[in-house]
Amino acid sequence: MKFKNHLFNLLGIRTAFAHCDIPCGIYDPISAKIAAQTVLKATMRLEAVDFSSGVTSVSQPNVIARLIHVKEEHAQQVKNELNIIWSDYFKPEHLDKYPDLHNLFWNANKLAGTTKQNVDSASARKLVEIVDEISKIFWSTKGIEYSDNVADVRFGAI
C-alpha cells in the first residue's frame, strides 16, 4: 500500500473519491473490542462471586445486578458496533476476498446473544477472539496489519 502511494505521488496521480456516505465517516472495530472485553471481565467477575456463605449483605446482590447490567449493555454494544461496520463499511467486493465475512459477523452476533443469556466466560472469550478476527480483516482492507498489543493492559486484573 505504501509502495502504491509512493508510486502515485511520483506519477502525480491524485485520488478521486467515489464516496458512499457523508465524507469522513470513521469506522473502527476497536469500540466492539473494548465492549467485548468488558463483557468478558463482567462475566469473569460474576463467575468469581462466592455464594458459599449465602447472601449476608445487600451489597452482594447490588454488585451482581450491576455486573449483569454491564454485561448485558456491552454485549448489545458489541452487536451495534459490529453491525454498523458490517452494513456500512464492508461491500460485496470485500466478500470476494474474504468469503467467510458474513459468517464471522453472524457468529459474533450469536455469541454476543449467548453471553447475555449465560454467565459463561468461555463464550465471552470467544466473542473477544471473533472481534479480533473481524478487526484483522477490517484493517487488511486498508492495507494495515492489525494488532492490539495493549489488549491485556487494557483488560487489567479481575
Binding site: T15, A16, E93
Partner: peptide, 8 residues
C-alpha cells in the same frame, strides 16, 4: 490520471 477510492 486519477486513482478511484470508494464504492459509489
Amino acid at each position: 490520471l486519477f486513482n478511484i477510492s470508494g464504492q459509489s
